[in-house]
Simulated scan of single mutants.
Amino acid sequence: MKLDNKSLLLYLVTDRSWLGDQSLISQVEKSLIEGVTFLQLREKNLDNESFLNLAIEMKDLACRYDVPFVINDNIDIAIKSDADGVHIGQDDMPIEEARKIIGKDKILGVSAGTVEEAILAEQLGADYLGVGAIFSTNTKKDAQNISFETLKNICESVDIPVVAIGGINKENILSLEGSGIDGVSVISAILAQKNIAKATYELKDICERIFKHD
């Protein structure tokens, strides 16, 4: 699947810890119906077989809504599930190695926290950047916050799309206007809300107003 920067407008990362007794598939589908444009499956505590089965199911769901689907960190699961790509962090597999394994036609997302990391990631084959953490987040307690100025500088330094990540919600998202990002990546701003459909609709509406795509 070819990456369009418009598809990064509202990027959902999964986290089953927010869902209680609800199924991840059913809750993610609610968000897809209301406008999530990109989906990442992030699983740290599942065994490989369960992870793969979930990835295959999630891939089918994403296909039904014509939304790009990537796996966080695990390239083996990404390949076996025929995901559209993979997202890796700075401490995961080297970027050039990841690109070589998944091939030129799959999406490669890379986390970056500095201009230097961003430029290098683009040079080594990244298709988009996830930049953060922008605000404090419970998901990655050790993440250092990135300033608005750094975020803007990163956007100005690369030609590939940039999505902001980390602690973003409908209360603080407006402060990112003018940064140059193509969209935002969220977890709890959707999955931790009592009404996932409503939360998604409201976030999508804000994103469409403040992140302009040609």
Rank of each mutant, 00 (worst) to 15 (best):
M1A: 09
K2E: 13
L3C: 08
L3V: 10
D4G: 08
K6I: 05
K6W: 01
K6G: 08
L10A: 08
L10I: 12
Y11E: 11
L12T: 05
T14K: 04
D15W: 11
R16T: 12
R16E: 13
W18H: 14
D21G: 01
Q22V: 05
Q27G: 07
V28Y: 06
K30A: 12
S31E: 08
E34G: 08
G35H: 15
G35F: 14
T37N: 04
F38C: 01
L39K: 07
L39A: 05
L41Q: 06
R42P: 00
E43A: 11
K44F: 09
K44A: 09
N45I: 10
N45Y: 11
S50L: 14
L52C: 05
L52E: 05
N53M: 14
L54R: 00
L54P: 04
E57A: 15
M58K: 06
M58A: 09
K59C: 05
L61I: 01
P68V: 02
P68Q: 07
F69W: 05
V70L: 03
N74P: 07
I75R: 00
A78F: 00
I79E: 10
I79G: 09
K80D: 11
D82G: 00
V86R: 01
H87V: 00
Q90P: 12
M93V: 15
M93G: 00
P94W: 03
I95F: 02
E96Q: 08
K104H: 09
K106P: 04
K106V: 08
I107D: 04
L108H: 00
G109Q: 00
G109L: 04
S111G: 11
S111D: 11
A112F: 03
T114K: 10
E116V: 13
A118S: 14
I119L: 06
I119K: 09
E122L: 06
E122G: 03
Y128W: 09
Y128K: 06
L129K: 05
V131I: 10
V131C: 03
G132V: 06
I134A: 02
F135M: 12
S136D: 11
T137A: 06
T137F: 02
N138L: 13
K141A: 13
D142H: 14
D142G: 10
Q144S: 15
N145T: 10
S147P: 05
I154Q: 07
S157L: 08
D159A: 12
I160D: 03
P161W: 03
V163S: 13
G167W: 02
N169D: 15
K170N: 15
E171N: 15
N172G: 11
I173Q: 00
I173A: 00
L174R: 12
S175N: 12
E177V: 10
G178Q: 09
G180Y: 05
I181F: 03
D182Y: 03
V184T: 03
V186P: 02
V186F: 01
I187P: 02
I187N: 04
S188D: 12
I190F: 06
K194L: 12
I196N: 02
A197R: 15
E202S: 12
D205I: 13
I206N: 10
I206E: 10
C207E: 06
R209N: 15
I210G: 09
